[in-house]
């Protein structure tokens, strides 16, 4: 029978905390970046210009239909050769994860926008608002409220997806865990502790999302 001993992990607490800090900072960055990209892609999808629609759709499908792990490696190794710019593991990871997330956010945001009653757009237009102003002041505030739970769910996935940046040696929680496991010869304790850390952060968020969803359903 395996004898569990979590106490040895205490000696590595600063490493874990550092890793956790990077994971959280990464998540914040790729959620913001992903939503920005998703918003842009969604608006292009709804554009009256066929070229914009095609480009946006192409982007979304490429990132939705390829594995994120492959994208990470591709951004780090292939892109610098193709465009001739050096890329740090952090930049490559941020780009890949933001684009990957963006392709999913785009569909959520597009769905949210088209779910708003066309009468809202008409009312704004009839008051002399330009299409951009109608989008910013009338449609998006209503759509974003409605999409909140779906965006949160996608962001929870984004949080977990950051664990993949360890393959590019970005020192996130999982990467630091690998270091600790090697150093302590205690991989079971280490990875269990990491799993618990992810769970403790994400579980309250999923509860929160579920509650928001129920509230939206009641008010709708």
């Amino acid at each position: 029978m395996y004898e569990w001993d979590f106490s040895i992990l205490f000696g590595y607490r600063w490493l874990f905390l550092q890793g956790l800090g990077i994971t959280i900072a990464f998540t914040a960055a790729i959620v913001v970046g992903g939503i920005a990209i998703g918003l842009l892609a969604a608006i292009c999808l709804l554009s009256r210009f066929a070229v914009l629609r095609a480009v946006s759709l192409g982007f979304i499908e490429v990132f939705r239909c390829t594995p994120i792990l492959v994208q990470l490696i591709w951004f780090y190794y292939a892109l610098p050769i193709l465009v001739g710019i050096e890329m740090t593991p952090v930049t490559a990871s941020l780009l890949a994860l933001s684009c990957y997330g963006g392709s999913f956010y785009a569909e959520i945001i597009r769905g949210g926008i088209v779910s708003i009653d066309p009468g809202q757009q008409e009312a704004g237009a009839a008051l002399g608002m330009t299409p951009a102003l109608v989008m910013r002041r009338i449609i998006l505030p209503q759509a974003l409220r409605r999409m909140g739970p779906a965006l949160m769910n996608q962001s929870i996935l984004q949080f977990k997806n950051t664990s993949l940046v360890s393959v590019l040696a970005v020192p996130d929680l999982v990467y630091q865990g690998q270091m600790v496991a090697h150093d302590s010869f205690r991989p079971l304790e280490t990875y269990t502790a990491i799993a618990v850390a992810y769970f403790v952060i994400l579980f309250p968020l999923t509860v929160f999302v579920r509650r928001r969803e129920r509230k939206l359903r009641v008010s709708a």
Binding site: G119, E122, A123, A125, A126, L127, G128, M129, T130, L133
Partner: peptide
């Protein structure tokens, strides 16, 4: 269009 519509009120 927007400038023009700002001079006409519409009720739906």
């Amino acid at each position: 269009l927007a400038a023009f519509r700002s001079r006409t009120g519409m009720v739906f």
